[in-house]
């Protein structure tokens, strides 16, 4: 299978011997997100991050499986849970740490914080659902300008409560926008389980608008990747909007320390649905250990560097 990838920093072939194969690249991609997010959660109590955070732990295979196959002109619009998407897209880990720490070197110079990122063709915003029309408009612009780009937008199960999502689905279908809607159903929104907030069918929400939809219950990057590839292929062939309903698991709290689920339930999820554990056995153990060591070093280095970076100067801000 030949796939094009965005040039993610840290994805280069550091390993001794043979160049990194696809399984190793996926593993590295997921591991980078995992260790980044764990570092954020661990260090939050130190008071070095502003605001809050929504970690992607447990969902890494989604971002890596889908975004590793984008081409440079493609566009991504992500939501509040955007760190994993950003890193998988190829965003700088150091700049992301720095943004969370409110430093001048952050992705948006400290203005946006955790939920408001923009780099190259990656965008995120923290208003549930509101990004979906924007992403649809982006896809239409790419179509009109004939760039051949696909747009990918992420939304969660809880976000299905927002009406503007359906306005966007309707227009995406009417105008055949080249966009992939990725519904990451982790079955919970903040503390509200899906059965208390979402009635009816998930896939039906897309098929009602004549948007082809594939449903997948998997935390395996090797299963997610080809399905996303099929859907992106449809989009690139001019077959209009497509949807992917991904049943997935959030291991961590919604933000920090606000998980109301039973610990047995979480342990069960971690045993059976961990994307990193599912994929790890496919790697040669020595090479896996080498990747682990490199990722640990990369994250620690990015963290330390960001922590030493300067804060933006409010006086500069006043001048703009």
């Amino acid at each position: 299978m030949s796939i094009k990838t965005t040039q993610a920093p840290g994805k280069a072939d550091h390993l001794e011997g043979a160049p990194e194969n696809q399984a190793e690249t996926w593993y590295r991609g997921m591991k980078r997100i995992r260790v980044f997010e764990e570092t954020v959660l661990e260090n939050f109590p130190r008071g070095i991050f502003f605001g809050t955070t929504h970690t992607y732990i447990g969902q890494e295979a989604n971002a890596v499986g889908i975004l590793s196959q984008l081409t440079p002109p493609d566009v991504v619009f992500s939501n509040h849970r955007c760190h994993g998407h950003f890193l998988a897209y190829g965003g700088s880990m150091h700049a992301l740490f720095a943004e969370l720490m409110g430093r001048a070197t952050g992705v948006c110079g400290g203005r946006g914080g955790s939920q408001h990122l923009h780099w190259r063709n990656f965008y995120s915003n923290g208003i549930q659902g509101g990004i979906v029309p924007t992403a649809t408009g982006m896809a239409l612009a790419e179509k009109f300008r004939q760039t051949g780009a696909a747009t990918v937008v992420f939304l969660g199960d809880g976000t299905l409560g927002e009406g503007v999502v359906y306005e966007a689905l309707n227009m995406a279908s009417l105008w055949q926008a080249p966009i992939l809607f990725v519904l990451e159903n982790n079955r919970i929104a903040q503390t509200t389980p899906i059965n208390l907030a979402v009635a009816g069918s998930l896939t039906g929400r897309f098929s009602a608008f004549n948007i082809p939809v594939i449903e997948l219950d998997s935390s395996d990057v090797q299963e997610i990747h080809p399905v996303a590839q099929t859907l992106l292929g449809e989009i690139r062939h001019g077959n209009g909007p497509q949807a992917l309903v991904l049943h997935t698991c959030r291991f961590g709290p919604h933000s920090k320390g606000d998980d109301t689920r039973r610990s047995e339930e979480l342990e069960q999820l971690r045993r059976t649905r961990d994307p990193v554990l599912i994929h790890a056995p496919r790697l040669d153990p020595e090479r896996r250990a080498a990747i682990d060591a490199e990722v640990a070093q990369e994250v620690a280095g990015a963290f330390t560097r960001a922590l030493a970076d300067p804060y933006p100067n409010p006086l500069d801000e006043a001048r703009t």
């Binding site: 566009v75 965008y123 509101g130 979906v132 029309p133 924007t134 992403a135 649809t136 408009g137 982006m138 896809a139 239409l140 612009a141 790419e142 009109f144 300008r145 009406g163 503007v164 306005e167 966007a168 309707n170 227009m171 009417l174 105008w175």
Partner: peptide
């Protein structure tokens, strides 16, 4: 010139996306 569904929020959002990607809606 696109006639739209009755979706004021949606069309303003779509226009935002178009503008972010270089158009002048």
């Amino acid at each position: 010139v696109l006639t739209t569904p009755i979706s004021e929020a949606g069309i303003v959002g779509v226009a935002a996306g178009m503008a972010l990607r270089g158009m002048r809606p």
